[in-house]
Design a protein around this nucleic acid. Structure first.
Length: 277
DNA sequence: CATTACCTGCAA
DNA sequence: TTGCAGGTAATG
């Protein structure tokens, strides 16, 4: 489940390897609804012959910028991966886009569940309009005072607010649970009910949980691998996600982690460290 | 707010 | 064989 840390790791890996490379060929778009605003022909026409100038991340989107303000934007949703391979290797099953580069490497978008999306934007304005309509601020850049403003504008529960990409961009189910455990906040607390001290804890936890997951190159819980096909290590450091029945690791706690459904999502928490009120 | 659709792999 | 996993858009 690629969330902010996994997408950041992938973007960094791609940046190292494809910036400065020219697109030679584009292919394999076998599932047209994965590219809502472009056909294979349009993708090829816009990118072949152009050179990658940047690879960035915004929320869970990877944004590959080519010369002439052409942007290839990819969202991996749940099972998607972006992997670089040498062009002589066969295309594996569930590959839905291939971008061949001038140095003998190929960027493959592989997604068994076909939930992933591929967008093409010509010009920075159309890219920014697309992103700004969907995404709130970056969690690693949000100032403490701005978090107040964001929280006060929300009436839902913490868990669903954290999952809302227009609140903060890039947090998904796994990191929402980890952030709430780290903050010692119950997922069903109303977002606007937090005391200043609790907001401090939430602000710190958002930064710490996401930053350390990036340092560990992401969580390889199910499908995720980075741009070179390597797994991250953050799955070895999870405190609650997927850990029902295991003891809470907080000093002297040991309460068994429970799973329940909050905001229609599997949600793991320590009921002692994260009291309902 | 909640529910459903989109998809496939995999566990029960 | 059924149902669950979950990101997001669309729909009650």
């Amino acid at each position: 489940m690629p969330e902010l840390p996994e997408v950041e790791t992938t973007a960094r890996g791609l940046r190292e390897r494809i910036v400065g490379r020219r697109v030679v060929e584009v292919g394999s778009l076998d599932w047209p609804r994965m590219a809502p605003n472009a056909t294979l022909a349009a993708l090829a026409e816009a990118t072949v012959g152009r050179t990658f100038e940047s690879v960035t991340r915004r929320g869970k989107f990877v944004i590959a910028g080519l010369s002439g303000e052409v942007f290839l934007v990819l969202h991996r949703k749940m099972s998607g991966n972006l992997v670089l391979r040498t062009a002589d290797l066969p295309i594996v099953p569930h590959t839905h886009l291939t971008v061949e580069l001038d140095d003998g490497w190929r960027l493959d978008f592989i997604d068994p569940r076909k939930f992933g999306r591929i967008y093409l934007f010509l010009g920075r304005e159309s890219l920014d309009a697309f992103l700004d309509a969907r995404l709130g601020p970056e969690p690693l850049e949000i100032a403490r005072r701005d978090l107040d403003r964001l929280l006060d504008a929300r009436r839902g529960r913490l868990k669903s607010v954290l999952l809302d990409q227009t609140f903060l961009a890039g947090i998904g189910n796994l990191y929402a649970d980890e952030i709430l455990w780290e903050s010692r906040l119950h997922p069903e607390r109303p977002a606007s009910s937090l005391t200043p001290r609790e907001r401090d804890r939430l602000h710190t936890a958002i930064r710490d949980v996401l930053a350390s997951a990036i340092e560990r190159r992401g969580t390889s819980f199910a499908d995720y691998v980075d741009a070179t096909g390597e797994q991250g290590s953050n799955q070895d450091y999870l405190q609650v996600y997927g850990r029902a029945g295991l003891p809470c690791s907080r000093d002297g706690c040991g309460t068994l982690i429970v799973r329940r459904v909050v905001a229609q999502r599997g949600t793991w928490l320590c009921t002692r460290c994260q009291p309902p009120a």
